[in-house]
C-alpha cells in the first residue's frame, strides 16, 4: 500500500483538497435541494391536490440516471462542478419534499387547533409550530440525501475529472494503482458516515423534546401513575 495518499498530479490537488472538494460538491446540492424543497413542500401541505403530481414528477426525475443528465447539461454548463451539482440537487429535492410534507402533516390536529385558537397567524404557525415539529422527519430525509449525494459525486469523474474523490477511481485504472481505488472508496464511506453522525448530533440538539433514551422512559412511566393512585385513595 505504498503511495496510498500519493495523489497523482493530474488531479492538481492534495488528499485533503479532494475531501474538501468532495464535500462541497456533495453538500451544496443538498442545501440547494433543501431550500427549494421547503416552499414546495409547504405548497403541497397547503394545497393537498398538488402533492400527488409533485411527487410523481420528482420521482420521475429521480429515475433518470445522473450520467444522462450530465450529457444533457454539458451543452449548457460545460464540464464544471455545476454540471455535477445540478442533478444532485434535484435528487435531494426528491428525497426532501416527501420528508418535509410528512413531517409537517404529522403535527397533531389538536396542536394546530390550539395554536390557531391562541391567535397564531399562518406564517407564525408554520415557523414556530409546524416546522419545528417536522424537524425529526426533515433530518431523516437529510440523512438519506446527504449519504446518497456523497456517493454520487464520484460519478462526476466521468465528465472532465469533476468527481473529487471519485477521480481517484479513474486514476487507479489509468496508472494501474489499485490502492487509489481503495483510498477513494474508504474515504468516501468514512465521509458519509461522519456526515451522518453530524446530522444525528444536530437532530438530538434540535429536538430535546423527543421521547428517547432507553433508561429514562420506563422510569418516567413507572413514576407517573403514583399521583393518580394517591388521588384515588
Amino acid at each position: 500500500m505504498n503511495g496510498f495518499f500519493d495523489i497523482p498530479s493530474d488531479l492538481d490537488n492534495t488528499y485533503f483538497g479532494l475531501i474538501g472538494l468532495h464535500l462541497r460538491e456533495a453538500l451544496l446540492p443538498v442545501l440547494a435541494g433543501l431550500l427549494a424543497a421547503l416552499p414546495l413542500a409547504q405548497l403541497c401541505v397547503r394545497f393537498r391536490w398538488l402533492y400527488p403530481p409533485v411527487l410523481g414528477v420528482t420521482t420521475v426525475f429521480y429515475a433518470i440516471p445522473s450520467l444522462a443528465v450530465f450529457v444533457v447539461l454539458i451543452d449548457y454548463t460545460g464540464q464544471t462542478e455545476l454540471t455535477v451539482m445540478i442533478p444532485l440537487a434535484v435528487y435531494s429535492l426528491v428525497v426532501l419534499v416527501p420528508a418535509i410534507v410528512d413531517g409537517v402533516r404529522s403535527v397533531p390536529e389538536e396542536t394546530l387547533a390550539a395554536s390557531t385558537a391562541m391567535g397564531f397567524g399562518p406564517v407564525r404557525r408554520y415557523l414556530q409550530v409546524q416546522l419545528p415539529i417536522a424537524v425529526p422527519a426533515i433530518l431523516a430525509g437529510l440523512r438519506v440525501a446527504v449519504a446518497s449525494s456523497i456517493s454520487l459525486v464520484s460519478v462526476g469523474a466521468l465528465i472532465g475529472n469533476q468527481g473529487a474523490l471519485g477521480n481517484l477511481l479513474a486514476d487507479a485504472q489509468k496508472y494501474g494503482r489499485p490502492e487509489l481505488a481503495v483510498n477513494s472508496v474508504l474515504t468516501t464511506a468514512v465521509l458519509a458516515i461522519l456526515c451522518d453522525a453530524v446530522l444525528v448530533l444536530v437532530r438530538n440538539l434540535l429536538t430535546p423534546w423527543m421521547p428517547r433514551g432507553r433508561r429514562q422512559r420506563p422510569k418516567e412511566a413507572a413514576a407517573r401513575p403514583e399521583p393518580q393512585e394517591a388521588a384515588a385513595k
Binding site: A114, S115, T116, V135, T207
Partner: peptide, 21 residues
C-alpha cells in the same frame, strides 16, 4: 381575528400542547 383569539383562552381535548416546547 388574532386579537380576538389572544383575548380568549382555549382548552382542547388532549391539551394540544406544543410538544417541542
Amino acid at each position: 381575528v388574532t386579537t380576538l383569539r389572544r383575548s380568549m383562552g382555549y382548552v382542547i381535548q388532549n391539551a394540544g400542547l406544543f410538544q417541542h416546547r
